[in-house]
């Protein structure tokens, strides 16, 4: 019985081996179908005005600006909504070119060369964990990546409102700070400064004054070390040098964070105080 079984098995195994051998040759897949979603580059003759602008920016600054979404662009579990065409066009001209890349390349050439992300995603709205939930979950979302940056709320950004535009650009540098944090690591010493005193999800119940007293530049910085790092960069980018220096002298923790971060950026060729005045002048003195 046992022998019979083994023989049959052997024969079967042999048969299947030969059968599968002969079938093998037929399988040939087109290369582009190997990916779940094929990557297609729009042919030049199909370019619209924004495509041409993005191409110019890509050639001048090496940043690929993405305003059109394909399934392989977006994480399947998240919901981002592409920006309206006209708004994306105006935004790319004003914010991407005039307020971000141009001054960056001109004033901080070393930093520009090494630290500029290669992809920038424009989002019409904000990040949503659910397609229709009404809670405003802001956040640009793309911050935790080496090469990619993105900003949300483009559909609602009024480019003629200087204060709104200034805030937007400052937040862009906040998001870029996340990128730098992920790339280099803010370091154990930074984390130690406020360890154990982060507000976590209760950050929104605090006042800004309380946050400063607790050693955070913004109450949102009290959420977690990541945001502490980014809001510190944001603060330095938002306010003039003298105001920053006055503030940090009021609090030992703020001072330590300031020292760490100015050094972190200066080492890479970025003077955040200079960046602040460049951005401010571009927006308010033109």
């Amino acid at each position: 019985m046992k022998k019979l079984f083994i023989y049959t098995l052997l024969i079967l195994a042999g048969m299947s081996a030969f059968v599968s051998c002969s079938k093998e040759e037929k399988v040939s897949l087109e290369k582009e179908n190997l990916d779940y979603f094929a990557i297609t580059n729009k042919p030049k003759e199909k370019w619209n005005a924004l495509d041409s602008l993005c191409d110019t920016l890509y050639r001048d600054y090496g940043v690929k600006i993405v305003y059109e979404y394909t399934p392989q662009m977006i994480r399947p579990n998240d919901f981002y909504y592409p920006p309206a065409y006209d708004k994306a066009l105006a935004y790319t001209r004003k914010v991407m070119k005039t307020l971000w890349l141009e001054p960056l390349k001109k004033n901080f050439p070393d930093y520009f060369k090494k630290e500029t992300p290669i992809e920038f995603i424009l989002m019409g709205g904000f990040y949503h964990g659910h397609p229709t939930n009404t809670a405003i979950a802001a956040g640009a979302g793309f911050n935790g990546q080496f090469y990619r940056l993105g900003m949300g709320g483009i559909n609602n950004l009024d480019l003629s409102n200087k204060a709104a535009v200034h805030d937007h650009v400052v937040i862009l540098w906040h998001e870029h700070a996340h990128n730098q944090d992920v790339k280099y690591g803010r370091g154990e010493i930074f984390d130690r400064i406020s360890v154990g005193t982060y507000y976590k999800e209760a950050w929104n119940t605090k006042t800004e004054a309380q946050a400063v007293a607790d050693g955070f530049f913004r109450k949102y910085g009290g959420f977690a070390p990541e945001e502490d790092f980014a809001t510190t960069v944001e603060h330095l980018t938002r306010f003039p040098k003298n105001d920053v220096l006055t503030l940090i002298n009021s609090n030992e923790k703020l001072k330590r964070k300031y020292n760490l971060i100015t050094k972190f950026y200066l080492d890479k060729g970025m003077d955040l105080h200079k960046l602040q005045s460049v951005i401010y002048d571009l927006i308010y003195k033109n």
Partner: peptide, 29 residues
């Protein structure tokens, strides 16, 4: 004005309203 693309996935051809439009707006409502 908005853009559209014809994309390919393993499961077939996709008609993708790739820029912000009435369609992406309705998805959100």
């Amino acid at each position: 004005k908005s853009t559209y693309l014809i994309n390919k996935g393993v499961s077939g051809i996709l008609l993708n309203f790739s820029g912000g439009s009435i369609v992406s707006s309705l998805m959100r409502m």
